[in-house]
């Protein structure tokens, strides 16, 4: 089914998605918000630029964007897959609980903040380029990988991992990270740690036709937190 987004309200687009059988092509997309919000069991191809909150609360559908996405992609996403052949805006995957987001190029500020995990539900974000500041802020679970392709500096901005208390980040970089907050443990990932992300990297590369050789030519820095209870010492009973 094809949906021409231009001139349609968000509600009309989402009703059409709900009414459609499995596969949906959305074309002429010019910033329409909330596409695929809470959707499950669909495969949604988007050509153009979807607006904010693409795939918020996504519950199992697959969304593919041929173009750039804007802010709040995959907000509180629960399950499914979002693939973006371009850039994503700010607050990508905020509070994600499961599923995967692949971004070919860059993402904005606050990528993957407050992601969580429980049992076998473990959200994953992979960004091919670089991210803005506050990457993985309050990270409570899940996995964030930043590849920094085409970037010769550290591929994330300031305050990476601030308030992090769970999960892990792998950042491919020619230079080691600097100025990380105290509770973040950083180390160059060894072979066994790299094997944890090998399959995901392979999949990411195959999606975007990236040669695996170019990925492994630089070290990956692994960021984890030193405590599940970062604020434990802060209080005095009164």
């Amino acid at each position: 089914m094809m949906i021409r987004a231009k001139g349609l309200s968000t509600r009309e687009i989402n009703s059409a998605i709900s009414a459609a059988e499995n596969k949906i092509d959305i074309v002429d997309c010019f910033g329409e918000r909330f596409i695929g919000c809470g959707s499950s069991g669909r495969r949604i191809n988007i050509t153009g630029t979807p607006g904010n909150a693409l795939g918020a609360y996504l519950d199992g559908s697959e969304i593919i964007v041929k173009g750039n996405a804007q802010d709040a992609v995959g907000d509180t996403m629960n399950d499914g897959m979002i693939t973006i052949y371009g850039n994503a805006g700010d607050a990508l995957g905020y509070a994600m609980r499961g599923g995967r987001i692949f971004v070919r190029d860059d993402s904005g500020y606050r990528t993957g903040i407050h992601m969580k995990e429980y049992g076998d539900k473990k959200p994953v974000i992979v960004v091919g380029g670089r991210c803005g500041s506050f990457l993985g802020e309050y990270l409570a679970g899940g996995l964030i990988i930043v590849l920094g392709i085409g970037c010769n500096t550290f591929p994330a901005g300031f305050f990476t991992g601030t308030g992090m208390h769970g999960g892990s980040m792998f950042i491919r970089s020619a230079v080691p990270p600097a100025g990380l907050p105290e509770q973040v443990i950083v180390k160059q990932a060894n072979q066994s740690e790299m094997s944890l992300i090998k399959d995901i990297l392979k999949e990411f590369c195959s999606y975007f036709d990236i040669s695996a050789d170019t990925i492994y030519d630089r070290p990956f820095y692994m960021l984890t937190s030193n405590s599940k209870n970062p604020y434990k010492q802060l209080y005095t009973e009164n």
């Binding site: 909330f34 609360y57 607050a91 506050f134 679970g141 769970g166």
Partner: peptide
């Protein structure tokens, strides 16, 4: 809550995707 046992449950002071009424509107409508 969907967080591991023994892990602190931290709710940040702001919603980090809401810095304006326009942003709030976005969460309301999502």
């Amino acid at each position: 809550r969907m967080i591991p046992e023994g892990s602190d449950a931290i709710s940040p002071a702001p919603h980090h995707d809401i810095y304006s009424i326009e942003d709030l509107r976005q969460l309301v409508f999502s």
